[in-house]
Design a protein around this nucleic acid. Structure first.
Length: 664
RNA sequence: GCCAGCAUGGCGCAACUGGUAGCGCACCUGUCUUGUAAACAGGGGGUUGUGGGUUCGAGUCCCACUGCUGGCUCCA
């Protein structure tokens, strides 16, 4: 047989476990290309590869096995709990249960203790094949597992019955895993495709339960709600700790936390859920972001428009938004209705809606007069604030708000212009994102969902082809997202990875042949005929508030100087040196630098601490030596110093850092 | 919207099984002021998210609402 690329012979009846007896890190084997348990007997000619616990597949096996131990613990402590699905997920696993009483944090502690006992006991996972018949019999008390068995019998193989279901029932035969105690008795069993680690001991102490949550059976809101327990699992305790440290780092960067700490924005309860107010310091950052974007758009041929926040409902009937998204819109205000004394309507009222989108307004601007092909591409841009009635459970800081401002542009082109405009647009978008400090991207192509879309197949094909071509031209990885498009057209979205590796959906570019139709938009072509323009929707930040949050988390609040609320603070070593710093500050201010001098009666060390915590990019310190030399001393945010820098040079250094938008 | 948890001065937290609110930072006042992350002293500030209930008595118990957190569903 072939073992990890080498020819070897093995005794009759030996297993993969025998081959890797000396390697404790091997948790499974790939035999003939299929992931199998180590206990699998080998046959002549088998091609065997080790699956180490640290490999992506090894981690999945480890995590899935940990999920089994969790389920065993749950049924041990809560015998009436019925089993749902328990797959591995990123960094860990979950298992869903139909439990009479929802789990509490205390339950989590008890479950952890019960799991630790099972792990320590060293139960082995034993695989056996069962017929559908046997499975139905053995799982008579597990209605959810039965449902998976039934689904397997129907179209497909059941693996697509629900997210994660593939770990329970694979293609072909059904298998049940018994958890066997040392004395040979069966502690617990579960319908499962496997494979599993050989013994619960392998799990060691590299796992932890993290939280409980509710989840709908098979991911459908119409189904029963199950109790989900999440956990994380790693090959070693050190790796578990490292993972927990990464979570702690993400928490330290949380924009909601930094927003309060740095006095940038808040969500007053009096205003309403999901509605932010920006404080002066947050306002500076936001304005710097917007100003730069505005300038770049001007340079790239965009024209700026403005539109109201509220409109009559008919506009959203024309656009189709009321058909598709009425639930996500704030309910209408019914205005102007008059009734007689008999209660009968004398004058018909009107429904007004807060706008959830800017595009219908921009279409009206386009349609305000006849358009010539000479005007195209016509690029209309607006920082347009929109309002969406997000469901209460999804509102999340600035990243999922009920009121937010899109940097929204609609570009009207002739069919001939579409391809080149898209290509240029993608360049423009990526370039601008890089200027804000993001530089690791991939693209996603969201295509038509037939159940949720309007328009002809041809128009969707044209639009999708144009986007695919533009994406290919960028050289970036393109991930398909079938059915992910909005109702009016396909889209490319730019996904950006931040400083700690998380990905965020940033810009979107959508090609739309449907709204121009609905709004009956036309232009006069060179031959005098009326033609239909194609519309491109694009948002670069998506939402300014959300982009603000992403940048804040990306930089962990340590904003590059051009975005920092206060760019320079002068700290005199003693009060008598303050005038020197005020002179320096005046020179900086004349160059547009946001600078303050700390005249408070704190001691110098305290002032440094204060401004370090505020993450001010440049602290300029001046004492007797600096004044005598006509210099200042730099203290950077990482604690490094550059002392005795001549004032002229210091000013130039700060101005250049701001101008070039570098991080310091 | 659903499930669970949480809500105490601006921020972070404390107050045993119900006995009438305290600390640190921040803020204000005064004194102090020479080299890179916290000088010292004093002071002000909370009807414990809102409304109702139980109780002799509620920050602590119950109900509703509002908001937040973590998931699920959703995200034009």
């Amino acid at each position: 047989m072939t073992v990890d690329g080498e020819q070897r012979t093995a005794a009759q009846g030996s297993t993969a476990a025998d081959l890797y007896a000396g390697r404790r890190d091997v948790v499974a084997a790939r035999i003939g290309g299929v992931l199998r348990d180590l206990s699998t007997p080998l046959a002549e000619g088998d091609v065997v590869e080790a699956v180490p616990v640290g490999s992506p597949e090894g981690l999945e096996v480890l995590r899935h096995s940990t999920a089994h131990v969790l389920a065993q613990a749950v049924q041990q402590l809560h015998p009436s709990a019925r089993l749902g699905i328990g797959p591995p997920v990123r960094d860990g696993f979950y298992y869903d249960f139909d439990a009479e009483v929802p789990f509490t944090p205390e339950d989590l502690k008890e479950l952890t203790a019960a799991m630790a006992r099972i792990v320590k006991e060293g139960q082995t996972f034993r695989r056996r094949t069962v017929t559908d018949e046997q499975a139905r019999e053995e799982l008579a008390a597990e209605p959810y597992k039965l449902e998976l068995v039934e689904l397997k019998g129907r179209a497909g193989d059941g693996a697509d019955a629900a997210e994660g279901a593939s770990v329970e029932v694979g293609a072909g035969e059904l298998t049940i895993y018994d958890n066997v105690r040392r004395d040979g008795t069966v502690a617990w069993k579960d319908l499962c495709r496997g494979p599993h680690v050989p013994s619960t001991r392998v799990l060691g102490n590299g796992w932890a339960l993290t939280r409980t949550a509710a989840a709908y059976w098979r991911g459908d809101q119409a189904n029963a709600q199950l109790q989900r327990v999440y956990g994380t699992a790693w090959p070693t305790k050190d790796e578990l700790r490292a993972h927990q440290e990464r979570l702690a780092e993400a928490e330290r960067r949380d924009h909601r936390r930094l927003g309060a700490e740095l006095d940038l924005f808040s969500f007053p309860e009096e205003v309403g859920s999901g509605l932010a107010v920006f404080h002066p310091r947050g306002g500076v950052i936001r304005r710097a972001m917007e100003d730069y974007s505005r300038r770049r758009h001007e340079e790239d041929g965009y024209e700026f428009v403005y539109s109201p926040h509220i409109t009559k409902g008919a506009l959203f009937e024309t656009s189709g938004h009321l058909d598709w998204y009425a639930d996500g819109m704030y309910p209408p205000m019914h205005l102007d209705e008059e009734r007689g004394e008999d209660g009968a309507v004398r004058r018909q009222g009107q429904d007004y809606y807060l706008k959830p989108m800017n595009c219908p307004m921009h279409n009206l601007i386009y349609a305000a007069r006849g358009r010539s092909y000479r005007e195209l591409p016509l690029r209309l841009f607006e920082f347009g604030t929109v309002y969406r009635y997000e469901k209460s459970g999804v509102v999340h800081g600035l990243t999922r708000a009920r009121g937010f401002t899109q940097d929204d542009a609609h570009i009207y082109v002739t069919p001939e212009q579409l391809a080149s405009e898209l290509r240029a647009l993608l360049d423009f978008v990526l370039g601008l994102l890089r200027d804000y400090g993001l530089d690791d991207f991939y693209l996603e192509l969201s295509t038509r969902n037939p159940a949720k879309s309007v328009g002809t197949d041809e128009s969707w094909q044209v639009a999708t082809d144009a986007l695919t071509e533009a994406a290919a031209g960028s050289g970036l990885e393109l991930v398909p997202d079938p059915g992910g498009a909005a109702f009016y057209g396909p889209k490319i979205s730019v996904q950006a990875r931040d400083a700690i590796g998380r990905t965020w959906q940033m810009s979107t570019i959508q090609v739309d042949l449907n709204l121009p139709e609905r709004f009956d938009l036309t232009y006069t072509a060179a031959d005098g005929s009326k033609q239909r323009p194609i519309m491109i929707h694009r948002a670069l930040f998506g939402s300014i508030e959300r982009f603000f949050a992403v940048l804040l988390e990306h930089y962990a609040g340590v904003m590059p100087p051009w975005l920092a609320p206060v760019q320079v603070v002068g700290v005199p070593v003693a009060g008598e040196f303050a005038p020197h710093l005020h002179d320096v500050a005046a020179r900086l201010r004349a160059q547009g630098v946001r600078v303050e001098v700390d005249d408070s009666d704190d001691r110098m060390q305290k002032k440094i601490r204060t401004h370090a915590k505020a993450k001010v990019p440049f602290v300029l310190i001046a004492g007797g030596e600096d004044v005598a030399a006509g210099a200042v001393s730099f203290r950077y945010r990482d604690g490094t110093q550059d002392n005795g820098v001549p004032v002229e040079e210091a000013v130039a250094r700060v101005v250049e850092a701001v101008r070039s938008r570098v991080q310091v």
